[in-house]
Design a protein around this nucleic acid. Structure first.
Lengths: 196, 196, 196, 196
DNA sequence: GATGAATGAGTCTTCATTCAT
DNA sequence: GATGAATGAAGACTCATTCAT
């Protein structure tokens, strides 16, 4: 088996285990079992338990960011871009529940994760939103008095809270499409200039 | 010292300690030290470590909810109510950083907190938002096609994400007033009926 | 309430609690509750938890020994005395289950009880048996080659094991009378001289 | 080191430590030290402290029972069998003081051991005695009116009490041979039919 | 590289005992 | 004398990490 495969097996197992138990309630031995490797093998690929968490975040967020940027690039209009972003975010959450839960849960383990570890990936992701706003403002489509820094947090927060609801609810109440369109619309109506 | 005082001392100490270290990285002995009581004393007031967390949440959320409802009741117009809610939420976060961090961090420790423990207090808080929306729709002020269930999550999420930003940032970048008004406005513009 | 009453209340409560849980699994607070006194009150009457156990043993064994000696004195023939002793022992066990259990269980907590604490009361009790044997040997009724030291242990052990069986069994299988007479007979037939 | 070896090392250490301190006053760390393993290693072989005790009992009683049955089978006459049983029991106690003390002390920790844990091994051991009696009665060697259920307890109790005496006494007063023969004789004379 | 048995530091919790009221 | 809230020492048990094989 190639090295990359074992690394991936462990990461995938960790995502499932962390999602099920949370980081602190997860055991290295359970991850090992889930990945079908020995406990000690994990330490050939990761420095420690926390390193697995960081790796999950770095690698998976990297993929998501790439995917999001690519998606955004396929659209011209900042309004479409925002709508697409919302839809993509919620779709990914729906399709990758475990990963979404890990990122959500651990992203909020503020102490270690958000404070000590400078969260560049996370900023990069939300900056996709503020970049759309900047461009929209330049194009005169979005109001100038919108603060992109506040907007990105509000918009991301809205999507994120919706995600949490789905992650925690046994059965989904709203469709991704409906949620994404509603949320985009709240914001779009609120920020577009009168003339647009 | 009255019993109530010691309970409060422990809760207050726990809020500080949990905020600093996170729940899992906090030690009962540290809470005891911070509260200036013996380790064992904590167990006269709480069943276990987790019970302290639950109690913090129940008690403090209870106060916040009461406060929020009172504040909302002082206004007639649903638009004002939403704006007030946003301002109040962010103000409370600013004034009670430690508590806000505990609620945010641990509220998201999904496993135990959000799944096992049926989170009525949290729902009660966000339902204040959806209630405002319902009333606004009845009065013809808010669009009928707004889903209050989605809206409350989006609106709360926006405020919550803003809060997290403040909690985690060493220095605050935006004023409470500005953030609250921007966020309220995004949404208000997005949901009011054309005639309003 | 007189001092003696409170002492007795605590001892009686301790007998019940120790019988139910065993010494090590019994809590001072449970004894206090059972005795309807405050935890601290117990320490006005006893030095520590272990002291309660010792006291139970000393006081209750004292009563039992007095009772047994009186009973034995009422009979002349060593054979009757042995039979009476057996019957009395088993009757007492039957009538004072809790006490019997405490004495049995804790009497066997060898370490502290039998080693450190010189168990005079216990010796005094079993010496009633060997004294009967001595007298029987002097009177030519019991064989000279019987070792009273071994006999007292064997005879007591037989009764004691029978007691344990009753203490541990939910329902009693053999009557006291039958057990006492059978056990006495095994021994009597074995130790009386041919001429008797 | 083979797994079996470490299991045995821990059991042997526990026997020594339990014998010295009693179960409740023994510390896992002391057993670990005595066995020359880490504290945690014990939990690779046993579920908890109590499990060690159960294991000691199960394993060692298993050996003793096998040994006793084998010994008994080597004799035809029920009288010889009883005598051999008594001698074997007392010999084993003499040769395995620590084990004997653990079994005696803890066997009597009635609560957990005798009540909750259905004590099959112990019954199996004493049933060797009643089986001898049955056979003796069938062969017309023992009186028909002897209750094997009472007899086995009386006989075992006599041996057991003798054992306790030795366990607790610093120096042994009676020889095994003498004690075994005296005890056997008390009983044999008491239960054999007149014709035998 | 892979294993998994072994390690031992670390912590929650219990509960006998004290002592201010 | 009586109370019971407070104490804090003590210990069973867990589990991330190591390392000999």
């Amino acid at each position: 088996m190639k090295v990359a495969d074992k690394h991936k097996k462990i990461v995938d197992a960790a995502i499932r285990v962390f999602a099920k138990n949370g980081f602190f309630n997860s055991r290295i031995s359970e991850i090992a079992q889930e990945a079908k490797v020995a406990d000690g093998t994990i330490y050939l690929y990761f420095n420690n338990k926390y390193d697995i968490l960081i790796t999950i975040f770095e690698e998976e967020m990297g993929k998501i960011i790439a995917r999001a940027k690519q998606e955004i690039a396929a659209h011209e209009d900042p309004r479409d871009q925002l709508t697409r972003f919302a839809y993509l975010h919620l779709s990914l959450v729906e399709k990758n529940r475990d990963l979404a839960e890990v990122i959500q849960v651990e992203l909020r383990q503020s102490s270690k994760f958000m404070k000590e570890y400078r969260n560049k990936k996370f900023a990069e992701y939300t900056n996709i939103i503020s970049d759309i706003v900047y461009r929209g403002q330049e194009q005169g489509i979005f109001k100038k008095d919108i603060s992109p820094g506040i907007f990105k947090r509000a918009f991301f927060g809205a999507l994120d809270e919706m995600s949490r609801f789905w992650i925690l609810s046994p059965k989904k109440k709203y469709s991704v499409v409906k949620a994404a369109s509603q949320i985009s619309n709240y914001y779009l109506n609120g920020i577009v200039t009168d003339g647009s």
